[in-house]
Design a protein around this nucleic acid. Structure first.
Lengths: 127, 127
DNA sequence: TCTTGACCTTCCAGTTACTGGAGAGATTAG
DNA sequence: CTAATCTCTCCAGTAACTGGAAGGTCAAGA
């Protein structure tokens, strides 16, 4: 499989697939005589694993850890759970943050008439 | 006021205050004989305005627009409301995204025993 | 007066996770 | 054989700062 086939199979941009090897997140793929990267199903599975992890918002470093655990038959589920719980807490923190931003901003937007006149509670609040 | 006094008054790091002038978000402050930046109350008010806008998650470019409206006596509140509504929609979009991530991840974390054994629904899901 | 420490300056580099593009070689279909 | 499509490497840019080095300035105390 050349890189574009692997990229389609993993649903990741070609650039990103190259990038993940550059930073050592996945093993550097073998090369054809012409120097083209060649991928097999196992590498594609790892790329998919990374894509899904990234979609959950895990950082590249966390993906590195998770991928390590994925490939480690002797992992303990507690290690995985620790990383996932941490991410879950971050998500919850962000949710609380967004909720209070939302409420405040929604209130301001509602109270702004949005007409041709200059008086504006949003500006008043910010200034 | 030297930069550290202004930075304290605006509750922004010194580096950030300098940065905002570098990118032309606020007017370049006047300088003392020694080349020190000097700030007055009006500049501090603008810095505070920017800090609050940033706290709402407006981008620097949006802050530039908002600051322009703040200083424009002839603004219309509809211009302000348009920018704020756009941000509000982004927040809501992000909230929906986080909610579905949260639900999925919470489900996985709950169903993972987190013990010494390797079997793990989180890894299974990602892989 | 000298010195010490706290400020201040500029400039460069690094952060995160890619993304875009230039310039050049390889491969494939017609 | 040629044109289109891949692929390669390398460099630069994104957002919004942040850290640090090297060096100038200022005020207070011995």
């Amino acid at each position: 499989m050349n890189i574009s086939a692997a990229s389609k199979a993993a649903a990741l941009p070609v650039k990103t697939v190259r990038y993940y090897a550059d930073i050592g997140l996945v093993q550097a793929p073998s090369r054809s005589d012409a120097g083209y990267r060649t991928y097999d199903d196992a590498s594609v599975r790892k790329l998919v694993f990374i894509r899904r992890s990234r979609e959950f918002g895990f950082t590249i470093e966390e993906c590195r850890e998770l991928l390590g655990l994925y490939q480690d038959q002797d992992r303990t589920s507690s290690e995985v759970k620790r990383i996932a719980s941490k991410r879950l807490e971050e998500i919850e923190e962000k949710q609380r943050e967004l909720q209070s931003l939302h409420d405040e901003l929604a209130h301001l937007v509602t109270s702004c008439r949005g007409d041709q006149r200059p008086d504006c509670p949003i500006i008043d609040y910010l200034g």
